[in-house]
Write a protein that binds this DNA or RNA. Structure first.
Length: 571
DNA sequence: GCCGTTTTCGGCCCGACTGTTTTCAGTCG
């Protein structure tokens, strides 16, 4: 059975192939838009196809619906197969090299029979590329450079790796003489779960002074490009950082433009056009008079179009522009809204720190409560608590609660949902805990029916209040287990079970699209870091980021409530 | 190929840079 991701990949490949053979570019873009729509939908393509409801996905019309249906029904798409006859899928591989688009890739394939990046490098080194029309020795050098880049920057970086690095770079820039202000933009500002490169925008009267300082600064392993207003560098870990310096009057429009997303900007500019306005990275203009209406701040741009300000995390063309026009954007959750931690481990299972250290760290953050949810007995590999441990830890928690003022430590547990959907302890022991998470820790490869049986039984268990990391994915390492997301959400809503947004940086589970759909279905969510040491409590910001990207408001999340109210909301 | 509070046909975001080029195509974000 094909997943949404598989179908999206086919649509993207069709788009790229159409571009190579010189098809209408709007048709190309239509395929990429449809791919994105399928990829981010929580609705299963197979189910939509069966129900004849594929056109409910934005960007999927009658023609694509028919082809997608053929693909999921038969595992093949005649149209795609025909295209593959015309253009080898291997050409698409070449397009991953920066500087190589569809035209040049096709030329290299047709004329030099280059099919892999290795062969491309060989051809460039052998000076065979310069023999082609429109190509020169310079082109060869650029290709060799591009291949190095694609290899150095292989894969994207997790948000929490890029974020502190970018913050430091921005701090340094802001401290420079002549720099009025600076911010990072791009997918990092939108807080996407992974980051390709870091974009930084700065405002200064004398841009070239800023760029030259920047490329000479610390943490620069290599300078890729350096002009008066633009510079690109590589950090020692191979992360590319692009800096653009503009005048203060253009700062807002540059920041808005480089924050993206691309789709958001396309939709925004389309709307501007229909209002007789024009938006570029230099400002917002009246088309008739040519007058500049604004651009010093992002707020000016959105306001000029009659839109409410849109937070960067929402700028994905997922309906935010319509909502801003209708003044129905959500007031999304902030880190300040979070009143307590609901998922953390101490040294009573596989955590590093003791109860008191964890309590003090949580109080330092300003929380009202901290749930220590150590693993239970059956999860031996994580040092799960025996019955004796539970009693002993309870005494320590009571003591710390007396000793450390200003924070309440909750006696929690993370239960293991076994292969039958049962958990570690029986009712009499379960009743002793203040808060009980249930989670799957094994049997990841089981078929959907089996996984769903386990989750369903766990949600029906009246003692399990929260399902932790509901899909089990580890970004870049492990795929989610085979969860029927919609059945999970409907089960959670029906049983009053809370679904966690796990804030641990390589989990972020539920992910943004799923959390947004959960909210729509009336599911209550929680934020938990899954900390295994005190310092990791700060990961909450990444959970909040997922919540914001999911359009969650504070009221959708239980641990934005004071302790008594939060406990009352648990089943 | 998609889509409609200007449209069921005729549009579809905008600008910069690069390289090889005498007016522009390709690529990128």
């Amino acid at each position: 059975m094909l997943s949404n991701k598989d179908v999206a990949q086919v649509l993207d490949d069709i788009g790229d192939t159409l571009e190579i053979i010189g098809e209408n570019l709007f048709r190309v873009r239509a395929h990429h838009r449809a791919a994105e729509s399928v990829r981010t939908s929580t609705k299963d393509v197979n189910a939509l196809a069966r129900a004849g409801r594929l056109t409910e996905l934005s960007g999927v019309g009658a023609s694509l619906a028919e082809r997608i249906t053929e693909l999921v029904d038969t595992g093949k798409m005649a149209y795609y197969d025909e295209l593959k006859e015309q253009v080898s899928p291997r050409v698409l591989e070449l397009m991953r090299v920066p500087g190589l688009g569809p035209r040049k890739a096709k030329l290299l394939f047709d004329e030099l029979h280059v099919t892999t990046i290795d062969e491309l490098l060989e051809a460039a080194r052998a000076q065979r590329i310069r023999t082609l029309p429109g190509m020169s020795a310079k082109t060869e050098a650029n290709i060799i450079n591009g291949i190095e880049l694609v290899r150095a920057g292989q894969g994207r970086m997790l948000l929490h790796e890029a974020y502190p690095l970018a913050s430091r770079l921005v701090e340094t820039l802001r401290a420079e003489a002549g720099v009025e202000t600076a911010d990072f933009a791009g997918s990092l500002r939108r807080m996407k779960e992974t980051i390709g490169d870091i974009d930084i925008i700065a405002a200064a009267a004398d841009p070239s002074a800023v760029t030259s300082k920047f490329i000479a600064g610390p943490g620069v392993a290599r300078v890729l490009a350096a002009g008066d207003t633009k510079a690109s560098i590589l950090t020692p870990v191979g992360l590319q950082v692009d800096l653009r310096v503009v005048s203060p009057a253009e700062y807002g429009s540059a920041l808005q433009y480089f924050t993206g997303s691309k789709d958001h900007n396309i939709r925004l500019r389309d709307l501007a056009k229909r209002q007789g306005l024009k938006i570029s990275e230099y400002g917002i203009f009246d088309v008739k008079t040519g007058n500049r209406i604004g651009g010093a701040t992002e707020h000016e741009i959105y306001a000029a179009m009659g839109l409410d300000y849109i937070d960067p995390e929402l700028r994905e063309d997922h309906g935010e522009i319509d909502a801003a026009a209708a003044r129905t954007l959500p007031v999304v959750v902030t880190l300040d809204d979070v009143q307590g931690e609901l998922h953390a481990h101490s040294n009573w299972s596989d955590g590093l720190n003791g109860v008191k250290e964890m309590a003090e760290a949580a109080r330092e953050i300003g929380y009202e409560y901290l749930a220590l949810t150590d693993h239970a007995e059956k999860l031996k590999i994580a040092g799960g608590m025996t019955r004796a441990d539970i009693a002993a830890r309870r005494r320590v928690i009571d003591e710390v609660n007396k000793e450390v003022a200003g924070i309440t430590v909750l006696n929690g547990v993370e239960l293991n949902i076994d292969n039958n959907g049962d958990v570690d302890y029986g009712p009499e022991l379960l009743r002793e805990f203040d808060i009980r998470l249930g989670a799957i820790h094994g049997g990841f490869a089981q078929p959907r029916e089996k996984i769903m049986l386990r989750l369903r039984r766990a949600m029906e268990n009246k003692y399990i209040q929260i399902i932790a990391h509901p899909t089990g994915r580890i970004i870049g390492k492990r795929n989610p287990y085979n969860v029927d997301i919609e059945a999970l959400m409907d089960g959670a809503a029906a049983t009053g079970t809370v679904l966690e947004v796990n804030a641990f940086p390589d989990r972020l589970d539920l992910k943004d699209d799923h959390a947004r759909e959960a909210r729509k279905r009336g599911v209550v969510l929680s934020l938990g870091t899954d900390s295994h040491m005190a310092a990791q409590l700060s990961f909450m910001m990444y959970g909040v980021a997922v919540g914001r990207r999911a359009w969650l408001e504070a009221r959708d999340i239980i641990n934005t409530r004071p302790l008594a109210e939060m406990l009352k909301m648990l089943k």
